[in-house]
Design a binder for these strands. Structure first.
Lengths: 259, 259
DNA sequence: AAGTGGTCTAGACCACGTT
DNA sequence: ACGTGGTCTAGACCACTTT
C-alpha cells in the first residue's frame, strides 16, 4: 500500500470523550499511557493478569500499534506492566519475587539473600497526627491503621517497621489477617485491598536505637540503626503508605544503584 | 514509494568489520548502542559536546534513523547522553547540576539544597589492599591515589569521604590540583583525566563515629553516622572509584527513589 | 529557511510460546 | 499454525532552535 497522508487533527486528540479524561495537548502516546494507568487504577485488569494485546489496544484507542507500543514501553520501564515475548503484557504483581526485590533493599554482607520472616507485633486503629496527615494526604485526626512488625533473616531480628495506612482504604485489616498471611505485605495489600504499591520515596538517616526499638531487635539501646522513612504510592501517584523502618546493619546493608 | 522488502541478512549484522567489535547476534540497535558507548569511551566526543545527528549516524552505520533513535533513546535513559530538541544530542557532563544531583543524594531536612563546599584534607599515593583491589579490579599492591575530603553545607561539616582511585588513570592528581578546583570532583575527573563516572553501586550502613572521623566533622565520637560505600563505573562498566563516605544525618538525609 | 530531535503511521518480518 | 511481543524500515509531519 501507499503511505497514507497523516491527519494533523488526529495527532492531538483521541476520538469520542476519551480526551476529556486524559491529559489533552500532549503526545498521543502520553494520552494512551494516562488512559492505561487510569484503567489499572480502576482495576480493569488485576495484578498478574494480562492486558489486551497491542493490536486490540490500538483498535480500541484508534491509534497505530506503534503508538500503543510506546505507551506500554514506558509503563513497562516504570514496572507497572511486564512484557513477556510470545505471551503478552501483564500487570506487575508483588507476588513475583522480582518486584519484591525492588522494595526490600537489604542484602547480606556474606552469602545469598535469604527470605525474610515477618512477625506482626502490633496493629491498631489510631488518628492521623500532622506528620501522617501530610505524608498520606489526609486530614489530622483521620483514621489510620498503625502496624508494628519485625522482620527477621535466618532467625535474626533485623528490621522493625512502623507502618501507617489510611484507615478508609484498609477496612478489614487486623493483626490476625496479617499473621495468617505469608509472603510480602504488599502482596497482601494488593490481593486483599486492591492497592498496588508502584513507587516509593525514601529518606535515610543514621540513628541510635531507642529503648523500645532496641528491645524488639534484641539489642542494647544506643546501637547504630539505619532509619528509613518511606512514602509509597499507587497508580496515579496517590500516597497510600507511610513507613518508618529501623534496620540493623551489622550483617546486612542497604543496597542502592545510582544510574 | 512502495515499502522495501526487508533484508534478513542485514537484521543480524552490520557492514564491514563493525560486527566483530560489537556484540554479535543481538538486535541491530543494541549493536549500534555498543558502538556508541565504545566511541564515548574512546573519547570520540567529549562531555558537553554534541554527537552527530541521527541522520548522520544512520548513514554512518548503514541503518535506518529509527534504529539509531532506539539506541540513542536507551543511552539517554541511562543518562550517558542528553537529548535537546532542536539542538542535538549531547554527551552528558558532570558540569551540569542535573547530573551532580544524581550522585550527591543529601538533601536538607528543611529548606532548599545548598551548594557544598569541598576541602581536601589529605591526598597521597598508596598501594591497593585486598578490598581496593577487588573493588577497582586491580592487583593487591597496585598504585592507588587515596584522598580524604570534607564536604560542608553552609559552613557545617557534614560528610567525610575517603576516595580511592587507580593510580594508573590519575597520574597528575594532587592535593593542590584538587584544592585549586571549585565544583564537583567528578567534573574535575572528567575534564582533567578524561574519566566520566556514569553509574555507581552503593552499600549503606549505620555506624558509630570513630575518633578520627568525628574529629574531622567536629563531633564527639559515638555519634551515629550514615556510612556509604560506593563503587563508580565509567563507560563499559569499568570500576574507577571506591569511595567510603561518612554522613552526618541530623540536618540532612539521604534521598532515594524506589521505582 | 534549514537543521535538529519528537511523534505517528504502516508494513514486513523475527523470536517466542501455545495450541 | 497462530498469536504475542520485538525489530527494522521508510516516510510524513510537528516542535524547537539557530541562521
Amino acid at each position: 500500500m501507499f503511505p497514507v497522508m497523516s491527519d494533523p487533527a488526529r495527532s492531538r486528540s483521541l476520538p469520542s470523550g476519551q480526551v476529556a479524561s486524559a491529559a489533552a495537548f500532549s503526545p498521543l502516546y502520553q494520552q494512551i499511557k494516562a488512559l492505561l494507568v487510569q484503567a489499572l487504577d480502576a482495576g480493569e485488569w488485576k495484578p498478574g493478569e494480562s492486558i489486551p494485546s497491542e493490536i486490540e489496544l490500538a483498535s480500541r484507542f484508534q491509534v497505530s500499534q506503534g503508538t500503543v507500543r510506546k505507551a506500554v514501553d514506558e509503563l513497562a520501564a516504570e514496572h507497572l506492566l511486564t512484557r513477556r515475548q510470545g505471551k503478552g503484557t501483564f500487570v506487575s504483581t508483588h507476588h513475583e519475587p522480582r518486584v519484591r526485590f525492588r522494595f526490600l533493599r537489604l542484602a547480606p554482607n556474606e552469602g545469598e539473600p535469604q527470605p525474610a520472616e515477618s512477625q506482626v507485633l502490633d496493629c491498631r486503629r489510631i488518628r492521623a497526627n500532622a506528620e501522617m496527615a501530610r505524608a498520606l494526604e489526609l486530614k489530622s485526626g483521620d483514621p489510620v491503621v498503625a502496624i508494628r512488625r519485625l522482620l527477621s533473616f535466618a532467625g535474626t531480628p533485623t528490621v522493625v517497621d512502623d507502618i501507617y495506612l489510611p484507615g478508609a482504604l484498609f477496612k478489614g485489616l487486623s493483626a490476625d489477617l496479617l499473621n495468617g498471611y505469608s509472603g510480602p505485605l504488599y502482596g497482601l495489600f494488593e490481593s486483599e485491598f486492591g492497592i498496588s504499591m508502584v513507587r516509593a520515596e525514601e529518606k535515610l538517616r543514621a540513628e541510635l536505637a531507642e529503648t523500645e526499638i532496641a528491645k524488639c531487635l534484641g539489642l542494647e539501646p544506643g546501637m547504630p540503626l539505619l532509619c528509613v522513612e518511606r512514602i509509597s504510592y499507587t497508580y496515579a501517584n496517590r500516597p497510600v503508605e507511610l513507613r518508618v523502618g529501623h534496620y540493623v546493619t551489622s550483617q546486612y546493608y542497604y543496597r542502592n544503584s545510582l544510574n
